[in-house]
Structures are given as structure tokens and as C-alpha cells.
């Protein structure tokens, strides 16, 4: 969705703070580590499913990113980095509170978040569930999307999706335009721009041995964030590394001609430039 999280080149923030943070200092304050731990532990809990018969909803980094995007823009701009994480955690806890045994009132009573903030986040979420997602159409009444290309249940497997990328290295591609209330990894600064595919990351199912150790295939396996951020389904799309000239993104007069930007782009966000 649009908002102040898409910082994309904005001037006006001033000098970069804390450039002298020592290498051995993990956090500016110790409780920041505890905040990271809380998110990691709660994600793990959700990743395993809250109950054996409830593999979904889940949350992950995609849901966490959308969580902070749904903050009041005023609050986002005024938040410290950790403040963004707290609001994100609160929105996820409030959303799935019935399964965790936590109510919004619990969070309010302890002054962790406000009802207004959560109602706002929830309202945006509802709008997003009326909208299409690139490559996946519009949702049904339960908020579930359909895709003959990117739903592994329909295609047959994640590996099959990965075996059929639409684009190849060297292709000139144009990114699509969009305006969505949901989370998107197609950031505004590289929408509707022409770039070159320089790498395809492959795609295969994550494999683990019986000890839970990953058996890494050397290719990508993370889900399509637009769908995963909603917490109901996991779709997978090919992901490409796309190279843009700085001047194509920021204007001939404004970007140094030596600058280039590489963005990783999900297949539904791309079309052949001359197509």
C-alpha cells in the first residue's frame, strides 16, 4: 500500500544518525533485543500453527511489513524503528487475539496500543480484501484468492511453478502500475519503469530432514508477499533480479549517470517492455 514507509528517495530527513554505532553493539538499548525475540517467538508459534488442526492463519515477515504500513501515517513518521515493530506486533495479536487468549482490551489496559490504532489497521485490511492482487484476481467471500499460475495446489507443486519462469535473463521488462491497500513489494519508485532481467532466482519447495535441518537447494523458496501478508494462503511466484538505470528512476537531471538500482521483482509485477 502507499504510505510513508515507501521512503523511496525522499530528501528532507537530514543526516543519517548513529553511523558510529560500534560493531560489537547489537542494539542501542537492551530491550530492543527482547522486542526482536518477542516477534521471532510469536512468528515461530504461528508458523507451526496455533493448534494442530489450525495450520492457518500464520504470520511472517510479510504480515509484519503490512502491519506497520497500516499505521496512521502520522504515527509512522513519528515512530522509532522499534515503535514500528510494537504496532505491528499489536496488530497481529489483536487480529488473532481470540486464538491467543488476548483481547484488544488487554493491550489497551496495559497501554501497549490504542483501540483507534487497531480499528484503523483493521479498516484498511478490510479494504484490501475487496481488491485484486496481481496474478491472483479478486478474493472470494472468505478472502481467498485463486491463481492458476501461482497457487501450488492448482499448479501441482512449488517446483513446477519454479520450472516455468515467464522471463529470461536479458529480457527488457516494464513493471506494472498499481494502487492497492494490501502489502506490495512493488514499491512506487520502480512502478511502470523499464529495466533488464539480470537473474532468475529459481523456486523450489523448502526441504527439511527429520531433525528439522533445512536441506538447502540453492534456489529461492519464500512465498509471494502480497498473498502471504494476508495470513490465509501461501502462493509462490518466480522472482527476478531487475536492473534499472538510476536516471530512468529519478530523472535524467537528478540521478548520477553512474548509479544503477537492482530490485527483486515478483513475476506478476512484470510484463515484457515491448509486449
Amino acid at each position: 500500500m502507499e504510505g510513508p514507509h515507501n521512503l523511496m528517495g525522499w530528501a528532507g530527513y537530514g543526516k543519517i544518525p548513529h553511523k558510529d554505532q560500534p560493531e560489537g553493539q547489537a542494539w542501542l538499548e537492551g530491550w530492543e533485543g527482547e522486542l526482536g525475540a518477542i516477534f521471532a517467538l510469536m512468528s515461530t508459534r504461528f508458523g507451526r500453527g496455533i493448534a494442530p488442526d489450525q495450520p492457518v492463519p500464520f504470520w511472517g515477515l510479510d504480515a509484519a511489513r503490512w502491519g506497520r504500513e497500516r499505521m496512521n501515517p502520522r504515527d509512522y513518521m513519528n515512530s522509532s524503528y522499534d515503535g514500528l515493530w510494537v504496532e505491528t506486533l499489536c496488530s497481529l495479536i489483536a487480529m488473532y487475539g481470540d486464538r491467543l487468549g488476548i483481547s484488544l482490551k488487554d493491550l489497551e489496559d496495559r497501554q501497549i496500543t490504542t483501540a483507534a490504532a487497531q480499528q484503523r489497521a483493521d479498516a484498511i485490511r478490510k479494504i484490501a480484501f475487496t481488491q485484486p492482487v496481481p496474478g491472483c484476481g479478486r478474493p472470494d467471500r472468505e478472502g481467498r484468492y485463486q491463481s492458476t499460475q501461482y497457487d501450488p495446489a492448482v499448479v501441482g507443486s512449488i517446483d513446477k511453478i519454479g520450472a516455468n519462469p515467464k522471463f529470461k535473463i536479458g529480457d527488457q521488462v516494464r513493471s506494472i502500475n498499481q494502487l492497492a491497500a494490501g502489502h506490495s513489494r512493488e514499491y512506487p519508485y520502480f512502478r511502470d519503469k523499464v529495466g533488464t532481467v539480470v537473474a532468475y532466482y529459481g523456486l523450489a519447495e523448502e526441504k527439511r530432514d527429520d531433525q528439522g535441518q533445512i536441506e538447502f537447494q540453492g534456489v529461492y523458496y519464500a512465498p509471494y508477499p502480497e498473498i502471504a501478508s494476508r495470513g490465509l494462503q501461501r502462493f509462490y511466484t518466480p522472482v527476478y533480479s531487475v536492473r534499472f538505470q538510476g536516471q530512468d528512476l529519478w530523472g535524467e537531471d537528478f540521478a548520477d549517470p553512474r548509479s544503477v538500482v537492482y530490485a527483486d521483482i515478483y513475476e506478476p509485477h512484470l510484463k515484457l517492455a515491448d509486449g
Partner: peptide, 27 residues
């Protein structure tokens, strides 16, 4: 390890993509 605060800052995130030479100079 963990991200240093400058990497997480809105200042760096905003300017890094559009003005990378300016970032190098500031550091």
C-alpha cells in the same frame, strides 16, 4: 548480526536508492 541503527533509519532508507554517492560521501 543485527542491523546497526543507521541502516534501519528512515534517513538511510530514503536516500540510499536515489543518492548513493551522497551516502558514501556522508560516511
Amino acid at each position: 548480526g543485527t542491523q546497526p541503527m543507521w541502516y534501519k533509519s528512515q534517513q538511510y532508507r530514503a536516500r540510499s536508492v536515489a543518492d548513493p554517492f551522497g551516502i558514501l560521501l556522508e560516511f
